[in-house]
């Protein structure tokens, strides 16, 4: 009886905590949308109003007409799509090499590469920038795309390798006996069985390139070539009247990510869990 009452009490407490925390977590997003729907006369009233009245859509009109958001979107996708393909292709190949072929020195090499996850990105920033500027690729998308074709980052490789290792080795041996080579095994056997993991790294790669701010900030100076993340900083304003526009543009930038999340929710959850646990 007491144990039962304890359990009910605990569940009630958990719900109470979860609901309160959910409200707290949602307030910033609510404030974002609320502010995007207010004009200057309502956004700068004191004390602030919680509900926009009247609802003003003009910030969205303004953001879309005065700022080339669609061009920013096109630029972002011009980087994102080839980088995404590069990440998927090269990470799959590399992960296969680390997970399914046993070769001398493999684990040592893998450990060495994995340790680069701890490397601060700023250490490589200056020489890499210098290299690209010497090659004449500053103010192009090349520096933002090409590195993705070299494995697509150790985190993605790690994730795929962990997944590949869970597939029984017998399959490969059977396929080898049938005369299949490694490329055939990878393409006909491993890839079809690893779709959840591959989708996971595709999502992470998408997020990374969609959200990347420092890369474009350093390499892109031509206003025509700016990405969404970089373009957003053009809306800057502190106490100035740009807040409604900035919030509308931010909402537009976040929206695709929220849609992506809901479409691919189960992969997000699995991928994070997988990436964290087997370390």
């Amino acid at each position: 009886m007491t144990i039962q009452r304890q359990t009910i009490f605990r569940t009630a407490l958990a719900y109470f905590g979860l609901i309160m925390l959910s409200i707290i977590f949602l307030i910033p997003l609510y404030w974002l949308v609320r502010s995007s729907l207010m004009d200057d006369s309502t956004i700068f009233t004191f004390p602030p109003q919680w509900i926009p009245n009247p609802v003003a859509w003009e910030n969205y009109d303004f953001a879309l007409s005065r700022y080339p958001l669609f061009q920013y979107l096109g630029n972002t996708l011009t980087i994102l799509i080839p980088a995404l393909v590069g990440t998927i292709v090269s990470a799959t190949l590399v992960a296969y090499g680390f997970a399914r072929i046993s070769w001398p020195g493999r684990d040592l090499v893998f450990g060495l590469l994995l340790s680069t996850l701890m490397l601060p990105y700023v250490v490589t920033l200056i020489p890499t920038f210098f290299m690209w500027s010497r090659l004449g690729f500053v103010d192009t998308y090349v520096p933002l795309i090409v590195p993705s074709w070299f494995g697509g980052g150790m985190f993605n490789i790690f994730l795929l390798r962990q997944f590949f290792r869970t597939i029984p080795q017998d399959y490969d041996e059977a396929a080898t006996l049938d005369g299949a080579n490694h490329f055939q095994i990878l393409w006909h056997l491993i890839v079809p069985m690893s779709r959840p993991a591959i989708i996971t790294i595709a999502i992470f790669s998408f997020l990374h390139h969609w959200n990347d701010f420092l890369g474009p900030l350093i390499y892109i100076s031509d206003p025509e070539k700016q990405t969404l993340a970089l373009g957003l900083s053009n809306f800057q304003g502190y106490y100035s009247a740009e807040w409604g526009h900035l919030m509308a543009a931010s909402t537009l930038m976040i929206l695709p990510i929220i849609v992506l999340f809901f479409v691919a929710q189960k992969y997000f959850i699995k991928g994070i869990a997988l990436g964290g646990l087997k370390g």
Binding site: G97, F98, W103, T124, F150
Partner: peptide
């Protein structure tokens, strides 16, 4: 196996020298 292994992992190994090891050495130099 060694050859196949190196072939498959070569993007990451080359990438390591191009984007990690090389730049760190260069950063020390600079």
């Amino acid at each position: 196996n060694l050859l196949w292994g190196l072939l498959f992992t070569s993007p990451a190994i080359i990438g390591f020298f191009l984007w990690q090891f090389g730049p760190i050495m260069a950063a020390i130099g600079i």
